[in-house]
């Protein structure tokens, strides 16, 4: 075991618990093999492309449209989830109603249900002869095989992110805050707007960013309902797959690099938001 001088090693604090070298080494090795090396292969492949070639790929109208559709609809879906997810959390935490536990558990369905299953179910549901589609058709609204369908799928997969991020924060909210606001003469609306909402705002934004990040990369639940018409309802992940099947590796790689960079940026933003949410949550308690 360690001797009197062994503790001079400063990378980690010495401890009597054995196995750091072994477990840390294995963790790092496995992480490199499965995650880091393959991801760097993507950047390596991208760096092989000349700048001009990269510009040609990225300024291609179809590429730009696909990215626009992916990011634009993801933003819209996350916004819808921010509003309705927030409402669902409020109802779940604050009100009581029959089968509340079941409803609470059902929120996680989009996490647990395989995306392909969600995809074909939503498509069938919103198709012209589907349960909901047949109600919308007389109104001239078509969902399946249009961008609207993509939006529906992205709302479906993003919902639990908002709900599960905000739920614990709202549940922990000190009820005395609201009593205090009321005792100071605030109306219920003012209390919610000026006391409750600012407190859960960081969590709401974190959930929004998570739902957005997930939606941008989503593939399985979207491709069935999208119609996949280039320039109209073709999402970026699908374009990567199509380019790959056409053996246009350079195109696939370039688009994938953009998507990966976007997820890194989003990961960073989410990380900051979580720190903010935590510091906000710790205040005044």
């Amino acid at each position: 075991m360690a001797t009197a001088t062994a503790s001079r090693f400063t990378f980690r604090k010495p401890s009597v618990i054995p196995g750091f070298g072994l477990t840390f080494g294995l963790t790092l090795t496995w992480l490199c093999l499965i995650v880091l090396l393959p991801l760097s292969a993507l950047f390596l492949k991208t760096s092989e492309l000349s700048f001009d070639r990269l510009m040609v790929i990225m300024s291609n109208a179809r590429t730009l449209h696909a990215l626009q559709i992916s990011f634009g609809l993801s933003l819209a879906a996350a916004a819808i989830n921010l509003v309705f997810g927030g409402l669902v959390v409020w109802v779940l935490v604050r009100y009581d109603f029959p089968f509340k536990r079941v409803v609470d558990a059902v929120i996680d369905i989009p996490f647990a249900l395989p995306t392909a299953v969600a995809g074909i179910a939503l498509t069938t549901l919103y198709a012209e002869n589907g349960w909901i589609g047949s109600l919308l058709a007389p109104l001239g609204v078509q969902v399946s095989f249009t961008p609207l369908g993509i939006l529906v799928a992205l709302v479906f997969i993003g919902l639990p992110f908002v709900v599960r991020t905000v739920q614990p924060v709202l549940a922990d909210l000190d009820a005395e805050l609201e009593d205090a606001a009321a005792s100071l003469g605030a109306t219920r609306g003012q209390t919610i707007w000026r006391v409750v909402l600012p407190t859960i705002w960081p969590a709401l934004l974190t959930g929004f960013a998570m739902a957005f990040a997930r939606a941008v990369g989503e593939y399985g639940s979207v491709i069935f309902i999208a119609g996949n018409l280039p320039g109209v309802s073709e999402i970026a992940p699908l374009l990567i797959v199509i380019r790959l099947e056409e053996f246009r590796y350079a195109d696939a790689t370039a688009i994938a690099s953009v998507m990966l960079l976007a997820s890194f940026v989003l990961l960073f933003i989410i990380n900051r938001l979580q720190h903010w949410a935590e510091s906000r949550g710790g205040r005044g308690r």
């Binding site: 360690a2 001797t3 009197a4 001088t5 062994a6 503790s7 001079r8 010495p14 009597v16």
Partner: peptide, 10 residues
């Protein structure tokens, strides 16, 4: 106890 080690000494 031996849960930590000193920089020097016995």
């Amino acid at each position: 106890a031996g849960l930590e080690w000193p920089d020097s000494g016995e």
